[in-house]
């Protein structure tokens, strides 16, 4: 069973979450549902600091034993920090996708775009539909 999707952040249909930290920056990761589908994450390719990514552009890559999956930027943004813990412990995403398994801290081009994404309730329904 997936962990509940926290209400303090927004979601993309590609199963990323983004959480505005109030200081003009935001954290991005993949959802617990996404890590469940991937299972066994064994490698994370992190973006370079300063990289600018358009909304829907590739921000990072997560690999399981069998698969390679892009992580997309839910909004246009610039990377200001990455979770270097993932270099040695990619399984943090499996263990805690919404917390210590965060992937990048970014400066959104337009913070208002975040609220245009899905709420946790919308994302709950998306997963329910996918599971049917």
């Amino acid at each position: 069973m997936s962990k509940p999707n926290p209400q303090d952040r927004f979601y993309s249909k590609d199963h990323e979450w983004i959480k505005d930290d109030g200081g003009g920056t935001a954290f991005i990761g993949i959802t617990d549902h996404a890590q469940e589908l991937l299972t066994d994450i064994v490698f994370v390719e992190l973006p370079p600091i300063g990289k600018k990514v358009a909304a829907g552009g590739t921000l990072a890559v997560v690999e399981s034993v069998k698969s390679v999956s892009d992580v997309y930027a839910p909004v246009g943004c610039e990377v200001i920090e990455v979770n270097t813990e993932l270099e040695n412990a990619p399984e943090l995403i499996n263990a805690d996708a919404f917390g210590t398994g965060w992937i990048a801290k970014v400066r959104p081009d337009d913070a208002a775009q975040i609220k245009a994404l899905m709420s946790s309730a919308d994302y709950d329904s998306l997963i329910r539909e996918e599971k049917q």
Binding site: T39, D40, V42, S64, V65, K66
Partner: peptide
């Protein structure tokens, strides 16, 4: 079946 519970666990 490519996996049941997880590749690493099955491996």
């Amino acid at each position: 079946p490519v996996q049941y519970t997880g590749v690493i666990e099955e491996h």
